[in-house]
Simulated assay, not measured.
Amino acid sequence: MHDHNASPVNPIPPVVLILFAVMAVAELAFSLGARGLAGGPGAIGWRVAMIERFAFSGEILEWMVQTRQAPLQHVVRILSYPFVNGAFTATLFACVMLLALGKMVAETMGQARTLAVFAGASIGGALIYTAAGASAPLYGGFTPVYGLIGAFTYLLWVRLGRMGEAQIRAFSLIGVLLGLQLVFGLLFGSSPHWVAEVGGFVTGFALTVALVPGGAARILARIRR
């Protein structure tokens, strides 16, 4: 029997909504400021100022390691950079993917594990980005979103295995996205940020294996076969 009191929209887990809200509110402020609708003349440079303040920098990380200093204003960069995007369109795509993937992952893994994947992918992607020798500041929400893609890929991989279907299909989404990145890179030039995004995917996949009960055992069994 149809429930007439049911919500017409599938509810999105609160943790995903909070992450979305932080990213969206920041973009709203940047966009309004750039159009002179908020903050006065100085607001035009809000986006650039916030990128300088909150973007992750491999050089700053290396300085902290060498000097054994860890000022809070620099430590937070490894978790704050996903919430500052370089353009409205980047924020739009990141937010849409965050809502869609975050909802699917959170409904399967729970909100705490989803937040752990988001934060872990942000950290892992940034560290891999630095280890690869990239020096440009890292910012934007795609690195942790790719971490959620990694989580979704593992969950789909498990589901396909239970259904007796080809598990390689679980990697279709990341394959398509990397293919599109390659095409756009060839046409318009590529950004080194893709290194962090791939790192985020790998970190998100690995964290999901560790966080889901029996995940490591499934991987080991697959390797042995």
Rank of each mutant, 00 (worst) to 15 (best):
Val76Glu: 13
Val76Met: 13
Val76Leu: 15
Val76Ile: 15
Arg77Trp: 09
Arg77Met: 11
Arg77Leu: 10
Arg77Thr: 14
Arg77Asn: 13
Ile78Gly: 04
Ile78Ala: 04
Ile78Asp: 04
Leu79Asp: 01
Leu79Thr: 05
Leu79Pro: 00
Leu79Trp: 14
Leu79Ala: 07
Leu79Ile: 11
Ser80Lys: 01
Ser80Asn: 08
Tyr81His: 04
Tyr81Cys: 02
Tyr81Leu: 02
Tyr81Arg: 01
Tyr81Trp: 07
Tyr81Glu: 02
Pro82Val: 05
Pro82Asp: 05
Pro82Ser: 03
Phe83Asp: 07
Phe83Gly: 07
Phe83Ser: 05
Phe83Glu: 06
Val84Thr: 14
Val84Pro: 10
Val84Tyr: 07
Val84Asn: 08
Val84Leu: 13
Asn85Leu: 05
Asn85Met: 09
Asn85Pro: 07
Asn85Gln: 08
Asn85Gly: 14
Asn85Ser: 14
Asn85Phe: 02
Gly86Cys: 04
Gly86Asn: 05
Gly86Ile: 06
Gly86Tyr: 06
Gly86Pro: 05
Gly86Asp: 06
Ala87Met: 09
Ala87Glu: 11
Ala87Asn: 10
Ala87His: 15
Ala87Arg: 13
Ala87Trp: 12
Ala87Lys: 10
Ala87Ser: 15
Phe88Asn: 05
Phe88Leu: 15
Phe88His: 04
Thr89Gln: 12
Thr89Asn: 09
Thr89Pro: 00
Thr89Glu: 11
Ala90Thr: 02
Ala90Asn: 01
Ala90Cys: 00
Thr91Lys: 01
Thr91Ser: 14
Thr91Phe: 08
Leu92Trp: 11
Leu92Phe: 15
Leu92Val: 14
Leu92Gly: 01
Phe93Trp: 14
Phe93His: 06
Phe93Ile: 13
Ala94Lys: 07
Ala94His: 13
Ala94Asp: 14
Ala94Gln: 11
Ala94Cys: 10
Cys95Trp: 00
Cys95Gly: 13
Val96His: 05
Val96Asn: 07
Val96Pro: 04
Val96Lys: 06
Val96Asp: 05
Val96Cys: 13
Met97Trp: 13
Met97Gly: 11
Met97Ile: 01
Leu98Gln: 10
Leu98Ser: 09
Leu98Thr: 13
Leu98Met: 15
Leu98Cys: 10
Leu99Phe: 02
Leu99Val: 14
Leu99Gln: 02
Leu99Ile: 13
Ala100Arg: 00
Ala100Trp: 04
Ala100Pro: 00
Ala100Tyr: 03
Leu101His: 03
Leu101Tyr: 11
Leu101Gln: 06
Leu101Met: 12
Leu101Glu: 02
Gly102Leu: 09
Gly102Ala: 08
Gly102Lys: 08
Gly102Val: 07
Gly102Glu: 02
Gly102Met: 08
Lys103Asn: 09
Lys103Trp: 04
Lys103Ile: 00
Lys103Gly: 00
Lys103Met: 09
Met104Pro: 00
Met104Asn: 05
Met104Phe: 03
Val105His: 06
Val105Leu: 12
Val105Gly: 08
Val105Tyr: 06
Ala106Asp: 08
Ala106Pro: 10
Glu107Lys: 09
Glu107Trp: 01
Glu107Val: 01
Glu107Ser: 03
Glu107Ile: 01
Thr108Tyr: 06
Thr108Lys: 15
Thr108Val: 12
Thr108Leu: 10
Met109Val: 14
Met109Trp: 14
Met109Gly: 10
Gly110Arg: 08
